[in-house]
Nucleic acid binder design. Structure first.
Lengths: 192, 192
DNA sequence: CGCACATGAGACATTGATGTCTCATTGCGG
DNA sequence: CCGCAATGAGACATCAATGTCTCATGTGCG
């Protein structure tokens, strides 16, 4: 029966390690396996028993990020109601994963093919579809492509996450800053 | 007299090396000193004669980036005319340095104190002052802080630069995408 | 021509991170 | 109580990048 216990405990620990690693690598993306292990409160040997190596760890983090994003997209119900409300819900649901997302966004350029492009592509497609829906409904302007709006959303989330970590902006304004800038822009609106 | 020749040629070479390194590191931020040397068409030994080490190279790139940004800010004449026009000029002038900027933006979190904060702080202050001027003139909304708008500008420039490098968006739309999103946002405007 | 100097090529030691291994300890279930 | 399995601690080899060194080459300039 030890196999059952093994599997169960390992799974719990694995998730804990993964989240510790995410929290650490968000702040210091070059952290050592040693530092990751210490941050998770385990030894380097145990860390290696969970993840074959640094690559495996990063790929597991990537999977975690993809999962959390897909959960967020599901929870945001992108197909329902006005597109701009869906964007607000999306940013709200994405906020808890913002740190991890910022880390992965920064690493993305390094993957260069060894990345799980399928997962990201699926997320990109769903988000781009939301922007396209907003364009077709007349809510969003059509001279900014869905692809660029999707990129900009990622970029703003990463920027906001880093700025909050460095204390340059207030964390409580996270959603507001991103949504208001992304949807409304910096220009002042005329009062109707 | 050899010292004169030395200084002159070295200065020219140094600049060429610096720009090659910028171009390479923009695409592959983890490039080796060997790769940097090859990209510049010189040997690793000569590269080390120009820059004591990798740190020195990155710091020189940082200085280059700061210089180019300050030149861009000067050329954009941020104090003149409507603030939104100044923002347009700013993005236009910043475009040639976007790749280098994206690289440095990604590295910024790693510096953690060893960075030339004075230079960046001065740039931040000038850009934030522009946004503040726009707020005071009534052009920009006041519920987004100048600090966040500055962060967002950096983030959008880096996102756009990476997206263009990866071919996800068209390079010719660089200025348009950034300025339109930053100033106008994604929402469609009512025709007046 | 001959000198000075920058360069290229490559050897070399060093460092830091990584991956693998062993062994003693702990904790839990039978 | 016994034994199994996971863990922690640490030794160890490996590898990649770095930094330093020497020496031969070549090129320009007097």
């Amino acid at each position: 029966m030890s196999h059952v216990r093994y599997g169960c405990l390992m799974a719990l620990d694995r998730d804990h390690v993964l989240r510790s690693a995410a929290a650490l690598l968000t702040r210091k993306s070059t952290a050592t396996m040693d530092e990751v292990a210490k941050a998770a409160g385990i030894s380097r040997a145990t860390l290696h028993r969970h993840f074959a190596g640094r690559d495996a760890l990063v790929r597991a983090l990537e999977s975690l990020g993809i999962e959390e994003c897909e959960s967020a997209l599901d929870a945001a119900r992108l197909d329902e109601g006005p597109a701009c409300d869906a964007v607000r819900r999306l940013v709200r649901e994405l906020e808890p994963a913002a740190g991890l997302l910022a880390f992965l966004y920064g690493e993305y350029q390094l993957f260069e093919g060894e990345s799980q492009n399928e997962g990201w592509a699926r997320l990109d497609a769903r988000i781009a579809a939301l922007f396209r829906r907003g364009q077709e409904s007349g809510e969003f302007r059509i001279d900014l492509t869905p692809a660029w709006l999707t990129e900009a959303l990622y970029g703003l989330i990463a920027s906001a996450a880093w700025a909050v970590l460095d204390g340059r902006v207030a964390g409580k304004d996270f959603q507001f800053m991103i949504v208001e800038l992304l949807l409304g822009g910096a220009l002042r609106r005329e009062e109707p």
